[in-house]
Simulated assay, not measured.
Amino acid sequence: MLEHGGNLSAAVTRYGIPLENWLDLSTGINPNHYPIADIPPHQWHQLPNDEDGLVNIAANYYGCQSLLPTSGSQAALQALPNLRSLGTIAMLKPMYQEHAHAWQRCGHQVLSFNDLNDEHILNKADVVLLCNPNNPTGKQFPAQALLSLHAKLASRGGWLVVDEAFMDATPEHSIAQHSHVEGLFVLRSLGKFFGLAGARVGFMLAADEQLKKLQESLGPWTLTGPSRFIAKQALQDTAWQENTRITLKSSSKRLETLLSQYDLKPTAGTALFQYVMTAQAQVLQERLAAKGIWVRLFKEQPALRFGLPNDSGWQLLEDALKSL
């Protein structure tokens, strides 16, 4: 199992601080999640209904022609490598490691590339994997650059897989509307922007034929009834979405300013996190943890990722930064 943010149980054991006393900034999840209405009892009693309108609602939200609901984007990215014969996979570095793990586990060769100018790697690839915006660095790729890369890959039967887990705050930069073309796969979920990671709601956006193969691989009832119920509400609540985009942008700027004030100027960020490259990353993570603040550590290219604090967490974070 790979290490992920949100692994507070390990921090509790190591530092001896009770779970309820931690400020968890390690996940990049919206601290103010979408409000969950009362779930009708029949949602727990009956099998999930695939004809409940969720697919159309989600397609309208993402602006795409076809998609498949999955148990978080994790389920989709794990199944995807089985839909291709063994080949060479190029993955952005650094990036969310579950992608590489899934392809390697199925026997594919995974190579790393740093940016879209690394043509000596990209030209070898049967499949290219990247996150946009990237997780954890926050790097963003222009839609046209990604579509150009896809065209090159598709001309030789290749695929482009784009994980847009952090795209909801800036939907104008998404390539979801192009996902119906052959060889393009876009992953989305309700975990980050909507703050509903526990509902495990994700979507694969792709051409119909590929979605049929993925559905066969995943089997029936990929989402629970309650999760489908919540997802439909969240995806249709445009007022909440618009307000949240404004709030997250403001909060992210506030976090950038706060970190910079204490000599931790972010290299980049998104509406949901700030990424700080520093040679002192491990030392700083330990010092913050000793004060009950859990941030995501990246060791290979030393860096810290800071998610957004909740309302009561801002002062806790600033107090901790002052004493580093």
Score class of each variant (00 low, 15 high):
Val201Trp: 01
Asn123Gln: 14
Asp126His: 12
Pro302Arg: 04
Gly225Ile: 00
Glu256Val: 02
Ile89Val: 15
Leu297Glu: 08
Glu20Ser: 13
Thr170His: 13
Ile57Glu: 12
Ala59Leu: 05
Val161Ala: 06
Asp208Pro: 12
Asp24Thr: 04
Pro142Ala: 14
Tyr34His: 08
Thr224Met: 09
Leu190Thr: 06
Leu288Lys: 03
Asp38Asn: 11
Leu47Met: 11
Ser9Cys: 01
Glu3Gly: 10
Asn135Ser: 14
Gln46Asn: 15
Val295Glu: 08
Gln74Pro: 00
Asp319Leu: 13
Asn132Gln: 12
Val161Asn: 02
Ala90Leu: 09
Pro136Leu: 09
Ala10Lys: 14
Arg14Asn: 09
Ile89Gly: 04
Leu147Glu: 03
Pro18Val: 10
Tyr275Trp: 14
Gln140Met: 14
Asn82Ser: 15
Ala268Asn: 15
Phe193Lys: 06
Gln261His: 08
Ala75Leu: 08
Leu153Gln: 12
Ser323Leu: 06
Leu77Ser: 01
Gln104Ser: 12
Leu187Ser: 04
Ala90Arg: 10
Glu98Met: 09
Gly307Cys: 06
Asp208His: 10
Asp52Gly: 07
Pro48Ala: 14
Arg200Leu: 11
Ala100Pro: 05
Val181Asp: 01
Ala207Arg: 05
Thr257Leu: 12
Gln65Trp: 00
Arg228Tyr: 03
Leu19Val: 10
Leu153Pro: 06
Gly5Tyr: 08
Glu182Phe: 02
Trp103Pro: 00
Leu149Gln: 13
Pro35Asn: 10
Trp44Ala: 10
Phe273Asp: 01
Glu98Arg: 07
Tyr62Val: 05
Thr13Lys: 15
Ala231Tyr: 11
Gln104Ala: 09
Trp159Arg: 11
Gln43Pro: 00
Ile246Tyr: 04
Gln233Phe: 02
Phe113Met: 11
Leu130Thr: 07
Asp168Ser: 11
Leu23Ile: 03
Ala234Cys: 07
Pro69Cys: 02
Gly313Phe: 05
Lys291Cys: 05
Arg254Met: 09
Ala199Arg: 11
Asn49Ile: 06
Asn134Glu: 15
Gly87Tyr: 11
Val295Ala: 10
His42Arg: 03
Val55Thr: 13
Gly219Asp: 05
Ala90Tyr: 06
Ala176Thr: 04
Ile39Phe: 07
Asp38Pro: 03
Leu321Gln: 00
Leu80Val: 12
Pro142Arg: 10
Ala145Arg: 12
Ile89Asp: 03
Gln144Ala: 12
Ser251His: 11
Ser9Gly: 05
Gly87His: 06
Met204Cys: 15
Thr137Cys: 12
Ala279Glu: 14
Ala125Val: 11
Ser250Gly: 04
Leu25Glu: 11
Arg105Asn: 11
Asn56Val: 05
Ser323Tyr: 01
Lys232Ala: 09
Tyr15Asp: 02
Gly158Ile: 00
Gln210Asp: 15
Leu214Ala: 13
Phe298Thr: 07
Lys152Asn: 14
Gly16His: 08
Ser155Gln: 14
Gln97Leu: 14
Ala279Gln: 13
Ala281Cys: 11
Val201Asp: 05
Gly307Arg: 01
Asp115Pro: 07
Thr244Tyr: 01
His150Tyr: 02
Phe141His: 15
Lys265Val: 10
Ser251Thr: 01
Ala125Thr: 09
Val186Asn: 06
Leu284Asp: 09
